[in-house]
């Protein structure tokens, strides 16, 4: 029963991490750029939700679209400022430009909302549900459902719509996409907007139960990076799986081992996985570059 309880919490946390990793991997696929600001964008989303809440006294689920919309706009700005000027430059320069964006976000947040931890409203209610003796925070259940819906909706857009096909084509080969008449720049902007909206959603989901401070992004980018690489660089299902693995270590394994030991075990497992599968869990084996 306890294990089940922990599993539920682990999956809820993993679902939120998955949204963080998803935003990261979308931008990665579309631009081959590592967005180091992703963690800080999650933080910004959380603080935005916390700041909007007193003015829009509605449940989090209604706040979610507003937060995602504002964050999508922020994503466009990040893309225009930190990616587009560097798109034909060495990829490492985008590392640095997004690190700079992270610094700006973190310190901008401290200036605007102060250093205090903040809490965003719950999606539906802050109570708990009892399901067969299992105490499930309403918010945990809601996180799993909302994250699953968002991830599913995204997969649907990518797989079934003209817009999604264009996004995928851009991600696979921007030059070819351009030759086919796809507006590549617009697609890249759209990807940043979607990826940042994901970050915003994750921020809102995390900031209710786990609070948010201007410095909480640094930890999340590490987790997103680990999830995406562990799952297989560029693989969307891999990123989701990687996020779940991390959360299960944090919540389930740490119930057996102590928290620091569980973290060490996570990293040791990571190294072991890389020794056995150098291409990550869902990655394709490295092929010879032409």
């Amino acid at each position: 029963m306890t294990l089940l309880q922990l599993l539920v919490n682990g999956v809820a946390l993993g679902a939120a991490y998955a949204l963080v990793a998803l935003g990261f991997v979308l931008v990665l696929n579309a631009t081959a750029a590592v967005n180091f600001a992703q963690g800080d964008l999650v933080m910004a989303g959380g603080l935005l939700a916390a700041a909007l809440a007193p003015h829009l006294p509605v449940p989090g689920i209604l706040l979610l679209p507003a937060v995602m919309a504002v964050m999508a706009g922020l994503g466009l700005a990040v893309c225009a400022a930190a990616y587009l000027p560097l798109r034909h430059r060495p990829p490492v320069s985008v590392f640095i430009s997004t690190i700079a964006v992270g610094i700006i976000l973190q310190n901008g947040a401290t200036l605007l909302s102060g250093p205090e931890p903040k809490s965003a409203p719950p999606l539906f209610g802050g109570g708990t549900l009892e399901i067969g003796g299992l105490v499930v925070a309403e918010q945990s259940a809601a996180i799993v459902v909302v994250a699953a819906l968002l991830i599913g909706a995204q997969q649907w857009v990518f797989a079934r719509t003209q817009f999604g096909r264009r996004l995928r084509a851009t991600a696979q080969d921007p030059e070819m996409a351009r030759a086919c008449g796809i507006p590549v720049t617009a697609m890249v902007l759209a990807t940043f907007a979607i990826g940042t909206a994901c970050a915003g959603a994750a921020g809102l989901l995390l900031a209710n139960q786990f609070f948010v401070t201007p410095t909480s992004g640094g930890d999340l980018i590490l987790k997103a990076y680990i999830a995406v690489t562990l799952g297989g660089w560029g693989s969307v299902p891999g990123a989701v799986a990687g996020a779940l693995v991390i959360a299960l270590f944090e919540v389930v394994v740490s119930a057996v081992l102590s928290y620091p030991v569980a973290l060490a075990a996570l990293y040791a497992t990571l190294l072991a996985v890389l020794v056995v599968r150098p291409q990550g869990l869902f990655g394709e084996a490295a092929r010879r570059r032409a």
Binding site: L6, A255, P260
Partner: peptide
């Protein structure tokens, strides 16, 4: 007695233990 990392999100494991 147990130490928890400041970045730990869910504290249910330590509460359970």
């Amino acid at each position: 007695e147990e130490g928890v990392d400041a970045s730990a999100k869910d504290l249910l494991p330590v509460i359970t233990k």
